[in-house]
Design a binder for these strands. Structure first.
Length: 462
RNA sequence: GGCCCCUUCAUCUAGCGGUUAGGAUUCCAGGUUUUCAUCCUGGCCACAGGAGUUCGAGUCUCCUAGGGGUCACCA
């Protein structure tokens, strides 16, 4: 069975890079009817925040990534780690190091001054003497001193790192708390992980974790190191690039399916296909065709996808989502008419809300340019006559309004623009927008008349 | 700096020794639309550079350049 995980540290919100790796892991587990686990890496008790954890959970819920079982907190598993540390100590595979932080810093300074790579020198590796008084030791694990540590990465292929690059790293701090690379290895093993898909900023952690696997005799999982997502300039994503927080996309009016579709195509592809439903992702995703190279975040494509998903969403669903954007279509009998008229012209839910408000609310102001252009000659008279015709015909549907307009321009022998332009400005305040027949069918006769009267007053006022 | 990874249109990517190097987004042009948007059609734009290997290289090898990652009692 395939078991994957997402393992954030609760130090901030969930960002899009994290969401992508979570998605890859989730897809791979679900595709194989396996398990997708959520583990919180909170061993550094000084840096955790409850809000950050909530933010991550909230983001998961928004995009619909569900995890199996309970959330696992490393901070609650210290007993397990202690047991393994004790075991390693007893087996002589780990040892106490009495070097103080200050000594360590001094050593590093010296090494760097000599142009060497900073590295623990192993001075307590085989220490048997009397430990210095007053120093709480850290625990270090014995890493191989020669040869290579290598593994087969599912994306990068064979990765081979010289043992000299990996020193006897600390597995437990002087206060007894275990450190990252140690607990990750323990947990990944204990949780039964088969596949670890993570950012390639972890590539160098892998040999360290393999040292732990080796010392404990665990079989390591398959690793996949995914290249980073860069910003639009091809540089590393940072807070300055804005909108890193996944929930920020919700606030801006993105649909989770659009975000997920966008992210799944960053570093992964399936031939020429661009649009992937969740079901299609589940059917087609395979970490083995994840790209080796880093990709850049491109807002235009996200926007395009979002527009696509809005256009193809059920109106009822959109109506519900629009609540968060100040548009309440509940108890409104023309939900379909309004959304059909507007959803092809919005790239985000915020746009959509805006488009809807333009129809539903009478124009608060008029585009003067549009007024000037549309109200030349006998435009006012044409509008009056058209309203009279409407009163006579009493159209209600889009088709009936359409026919009324046709009949009017034909009988008057004028071009459509003669009626359409002033009517559009009267109804919407500007020169562009949805079809007038649609708009009128939504507004109804009395509202149309009201808006015509309103613009007439506006014209007199000038 | 050491070590490691990466490199096809502006961007996301297809390609897995023989292709007019394909698709998508953006942009531009045309069509549809009373308008705008949608939609449709078309166009512009790429194998980082250099050596090899080969009858033949975007595809394999090496070098150079550029980009990225990493070197904590952070995760």
């Amino acid at each position: 069975m395939v078991v994957t995980r997402f393992a954030p540290s609760p130090t901030g919100y969930l960002h899009i890079g994290g969401l992508r790796t979570a998605l890859f892991n989730w897809l791979w587990a679900r595709k194989n009817q396996g398990k997708f686990l959520l583990r919180i890496e909170d061993t550094d008790l000084t840096r955790n925040s409850q809000e950050a954890l909530q933010a991550i959970l909230e983001a998961f819920e928004w995009v619909g990534l569900n995890y199996d079982g309970e959330v696992i907190y490393q901070s609650k598993r210290f007993d397990i780690y202690k047991k393994y540390i004790k075991q390693l100590l007893e087996e002589g595979k780990a040892y106490k190091c009495y070097m103080t932080k200050e000594e360590l810093d001094a050593l590093r300074q010296e090494q760097m001054a000599r142009g060497e790579r900073p590295r623990y020198d192993g001075r307590y590796r085989d220490f048997t003497g009397e430990p210095p008084a007053g120093v709480e030791p850290v625990i270090r694990i014995k890493a191989p001193q020669e040869g290579f540590i290598e593994f087969e990465d599912g994306i990068k292929g064979k990765v081979k790192i010289a043992a000299s690059e990996v020193d006897d790293f600390i597995i437990a701090r002087s206060d007894g708390t275990p450190t990252y690379n140690f607990v990750v290895a323990i947990d990944d093993y204990e949780m039964g992980l088969t596949d670890v898909i993570r950012g390639d900023d972890h590539l160098y952690n892998t040999p360290k974790q393999l040292v732990v696997y080796e010392a404990l005799g665990f079989k390591p999982p398959k690793f996949y190191h995914v290249a980073m997502i860069n910003n639009e300039q091809g540089k590393k994503l940072s807070k300055r690039d804005g909108a890193l927080d996944v929930m920020e996309y919700k606030r801006m009016g993105y649909l989770p399916e659009a975000l997920l579709n966008f992210l799944v195509r960053l570093g992964w592809s399936h031939g020429d296909q661009e649009i992937f439903s969740i079901d299609e992702m589940l059917e087609l995703f395979d970490p083995k065709n994840i790209n080796k190279s880093a990709s850049s975040y491109n807002l235009d494509k996200l926007l395009w996808l979002n527009a696509h998903y809005i256009k193809n969403s059920e109106n009822e669903k959109l109506a519900k989502l629009l609540e968060d954007f100040g548009v309440s279509l509940q108890n409104f009998d023309k939900i379909d008419a309004v959304l059909n008229a507007t959803k092809s012209r919005a790239k985000t839910l915020a746009d959509l809300a805006n488009e809807i408000n333009k129809i539903l609310n009478e124009p608060a102001k008029y585009s003067e340019k549009a007024v000037k252009k549309a109200f030349k000659g006998d435009a006012v008279q044409i509008l009056d006559e058209f309203v009279s015709l409407l009163k006579e015909l009493k159209p209600t549907t889009k088709e009936q309004y359409h026919d009324a307009m046709q009949k009017f321009v034909q009988s008057k022998e004028i071009g459509f623009g003669k009626l359409g332009q002033p009517l559009r400005v009267a109804l919407l305040g500007e020169m562009s927008g949805p079809g007038l027949d649609e708009v009128m069918a939504i507004l109804g006769l009395s509202e149309v008349e009201k808006r015509v009267e309103k613009i007439k007053k506006h014209l007199l006022g000038n």
